[in-house]
C-alpha cells in the first residue's frame, strides 16, 4: 500500500469524524504519513458531516479527498453525494440498516454492512461507526491490529475512557462481520 484515501460521510452525531480520527491515529501509530480533514461550517449542523483521511508512505499533498479509494456512507444523502466519486476498483462500505438503496455501479466493491443493527443487537446503540471501523480495517489491513487498538486508545478523550471497552467490542464485531 502506498496511498489510501478514505472519505467518511454521514449525519452529524453518528461519529463520522471520530471514526476518521481512530483510523488516522492508527495510521500514525503504524508509522505512516496521515492527515484528517473535516468538513466544517454550516453543513456540519443538520446536514451531512464528512471527513477525509489520507494514509500514505509518502508526504501527503492535498488532505481533501475528492475521489476516495474507500467511501464510508452512513446515510442516504452521503451515498448519493459521493457514490460516483469513488475510484474504479474502490470500495464502498455502507450502513445497510440505514440505507436500503443498492449501489448501481459494477466497478466498485460494495459492502452492505448492517452496522447500526449489529451495534444495537450488541446493546451498544449508536456505535455503528466503530463496527464500520472494524470492517474497514479488515478490508484494508493498513496497520496491525495492535496499532488499530492504539489508535482507538489515543482517540478517546480521558473523560470518556469508560467507553473504551464498548468501542473495542464494536470494532471486534466489525472485524468479524
Amino acid at each position: 500500500m502506498t496511498d489510501l484515501n478514505i472519505l467518511f460521510a454521514g449525519f452529524g452525531g453518528q461519529g463520522v469524524l471520530f471514526s476518521g480520527k481512530v483510523i488516522a491515529y492508527a495510521g500514525m501509530m503504524e508509522g505512516k504519513e496521515i492527515s484528517w480533514l473535516p468538513s466544517y461550517g454550516p453543513e456540519m449542523r443538520g446536514g451531512t458531516a464528512n471527513c477525509s483521511v489520507c494514509i500514505s508512505d509518502n508526504k501527503i499533498g492535498s488532505p481533501l479527498v475528492t475521489n476516495p479509494d474507500i467511501l464510508v456512507a452512513m446515510n442516504l444523502p452521503s451515498l448519493d453525494k459521493f457514490v460516483n466519486e469513488v475510484v474504479p476498483g474502490g470500495t464502498i462500505i455502507l450502513d445497510s440498516t440505514l440505507i436500503e438503496k443498492k449501489v448501481e455501479r459494477d466497478d466498485v466493491n460494495v459492502i452492505y454492512l448492517p452496522a447500526s443493527k449489529l451495534a444495537e443487537d450488541a446493546g451498544v446503540k449508536g456505535a455503528a461507526n466503530m463496527v464500520i471501523v472494524g470492517r474497514l480495517w479488515r478490508e484494508t489491513k493498513f496497520c496491525s491490529e495492535e496499532n488499530l487498538d492504539k489508535g482507538l486508545l489515543k482517540s478517546i478523550p480521558p473523560k470518556k475512557i469508560d467507553l473504551l471497552d464498548k468501542n473495542r467490542k464494536m470494532i471486534k464485531t466489525g472485524i468479524e462481520s
Binding site: 480520527k21 488516522a24 500514525m28 496521515i34 492527515s35 484528517w36 480533514l37 473535516p38 466544517y40 501527503i60 488532505p63 481533501l64
Partner: peptide
C-alpha cells in the same frame, strides 16, 4: 488558511 487550520496532522 482554513485547510491548515482545520486539518489534523501528527
Amino acid at each position: 488558511d482554513g485547510m491548515l487550520g482545520q486539518m489534523m496532522e501528527p
